[in-house]
Design a protein around this nucleic acid. Structure first.
Length: 482
RNA sequence: GGCACCGUCGCCAAGUGGUAAGGCAAAGGUCUGCAAAACCUUUAUUCCCCGGUUCGAAUCCGGGCGGUGCCUCCA
């Protein structure tokens, strides 16, 4: 089954063809860890997580590398502001990032390299670039990459050097031979983290770390490189230039990575969520209000390349939806208990996989699930007893749906526990006290037993007005927060 | 200014040449003591506008209009 993806390098949808059949070497640009991660990061890494999960489900042996950028201007600035050691600050936020990713249900990458642990490789790579004439040390102790030496420069971003020059905010910088050249190595300023190098004490520039760590852990060319759309230029453009130049006699972008994927942004009121605009929510803030799986469902409800608007309202919609999914599963599990699933994993699993084969179309997968869930509910809610065949069918549904969920990172919890967790979050948001609700339900039950329906309904309506829905079922009365 | 991307039902959102998926909301119905939940039915002859190509276009091309992103740190 070919995997199709929209390749930024060629601007079209094409087949993912790895260098070695059956193996995918994948590098996703990781976070710069100077602050809490926000919803934009959540999207990014949920997307890559599903990419990795699906490729593995399709039988590929995937090596997934995602870095931590822990040496950087912003980290140093933040650490200085707080009087904290930059390395320690970065390590702290890297841990927090891992916790956030775990909460979201993302698999850990196979390797999570840090810049601070790869300085020797970075220095060696810069030396190679200097030796090959692609880079030059400047008098101020910086080392720059000479953009005009790389013929394929700007191809990923579809920009030529003249385009770039016209829009560039050129700062008078005597050290650079060309305004578009970028720093591979920055001379140390007092108090900054610094390492020894042939050009004096200093630290890596921005783009070089990803190149060096990619080559260190995956070699070249890799099969797939991913990141947010904002990384196309300059970050990935420069990564390509320096990596391709460093590897063999590579002069084209493909020398570094065969395919490139970029995802769209999370937005607030149709504006990019970003640190600089200040319109961001951290993952932790959102997870205080909503279940992590709700966030995941929300993020997978839009194709990865499109922008996705964040709002509490849309998360509430997701919460309702996830509750529906788990409630159905709970019902089905109960009815199918003891029955063996019919046949092999079937139709809907294939449909879902095919949707993911086609540029990772997660909304399409959710549509596949929607139809299956409706059908399951029809059967589950029908009056009377289910035949053995029907119970096998329900068991097969539960199996297949969970199989699809494995690839999406959804529906892996015990249904009852998940429903309860969703309710707790909703209750918390609305300030509803569970004990109080339970007391109301008990009172209503007593009234109904005494045939005092008016009183029973009054209690129910009062609860409903506060957002608490009473559900009378064969198993007794339960409740939920709307 | 340069380079890209986007504009599909009230809202969210697939579909990128073969005659408009799915979700939410809304209305009616089944079920229910009444509800809630679940299910059924209904809801875009039409895909921002105008031209063109084609037997055929939401999908391709040209021109408008509107929005966003990148060009500086950013997932």
């Amino acid at each position: 089954m070919p995997i199709l993806l929209h390749d930024t390098l060629t601007s079209d949808k094409r087949e993912l063809v790895p260098l070695e059949p059956g193996k995918i070497r994948f590098y996703a640009c990781g976070p710069t860890v100077y602050d809490w991660s926000h919803v934009g990061h959540a999207r990014s890494y949920v997307v890559w997580d599903v990419v990795v999960r699906h490729l593995r489900a399709r039988g590929y042996e995937v090596k997934y590398v995602r870095n931590f950028t822990d040496v950087d201007d912003k980290i140093i600035r933040r650490a200085t502001e707080r009087g904290e050691d930059p390395v320690a600050l970065a390590a702290r936020f890297a841990r927090a990032f891992d916790e956030d990713m775990d909460a979201l249900g993302n698999l850990r990458p196979d390797v999570a390299p840090k810049v601070s642990e790869h300085v020797p490789q970075i220095v060696a790579m810069i030396e190679t670039l200097v030796a090959k004439g692609f880079a030059y040390p400047a008098a101020n102790g910086d080392v720059y990459y000479s953009v005009r030496k790389f013929p394929d420069y700007g191809r990923l971003a579809k920009r030529n050097l003249d385009d770039l020059l016209s829009g560039a905010r050129v700062e008078p910088d005597e050290a650079k031979r060309d305004p578009l050249d970028f720093a591979l190595w920055k001379a140390a300023k007092p108090g900054e983290p610094a390492w020894e190098s042939p050009w004096g004490r200093g630290r890596p520039g921005w783009h070089i770390e990803c190149s060096a760590m990619t080559l260190a852990h995956l070699g070249a060319p890799i099969d797939l490189h991913g990141g947010g759309k904002d990384l196309v230029f300059p970050h990935h453009t420069n990564e390509i230039a320096q990596s391709a130049a460093a590897v063999g006699d590579g002069r084209t972008a493909e020398t570094f990575s065969r395919h490139w994927m970029h995802h769209g942004f999370v937005e607030i009121d149709s504006e990019k969520m970003s640190k600089s605009l200040g319109n961001f929510f951290t993952i932790r803030e959102v997870l205080a209000k909503f279940d992590a799986e709700v966030m995941r469902l929300f993020l997978l409800g839009t194709h990865y390349r499109n922008p996705i608007n964040y709002s509490d309202q849309i998360l509430q919609e997701g919460e309702r939806r996830l509750r529906y999914l788990y409630r159905t599963l709970e019902k089905v599990d109960r009815l199918a208990a003891g029955a063996s699933p019919a046949g092999q994993p079937g139709g809907i699993v294939d449909d879902a996989r095919r949707a993911l084969d086609d540029d990772f179309n997660t909304p399409q997968v959710l549509a596949v699930l929607a139809e299956a869930f409706t059908a399951a509910n029809v059967l589950a809610d029908r009056k009377g007893k289910r035949t053995p065949e029907e119970r096998s069918g329900l068991a097969a549904f539960a199996r297949d749906v969970r199989e699809i969920g494995t690839t999406l990172g959804l529906l892996q919890r015990a249904p009852q526990a998940a429903v309860r967790a969703l309710r707790e979050k909703a209750a918390l948001r609305r300030g509803i006290d569970a004990a109080e609700v339970e007391a109301g339900i008990a009172e209503r039950a007593a009234a109904r037993k005494a045939k005092d329906f008016a009183r029973g309904d009054a209690i129910r309506d009062a609860l409903l007005a506060r957002g608490v829905a009473i559900l009378d079922g064969p198993e007794g009365t339960t409740w939920d927060v709307e």
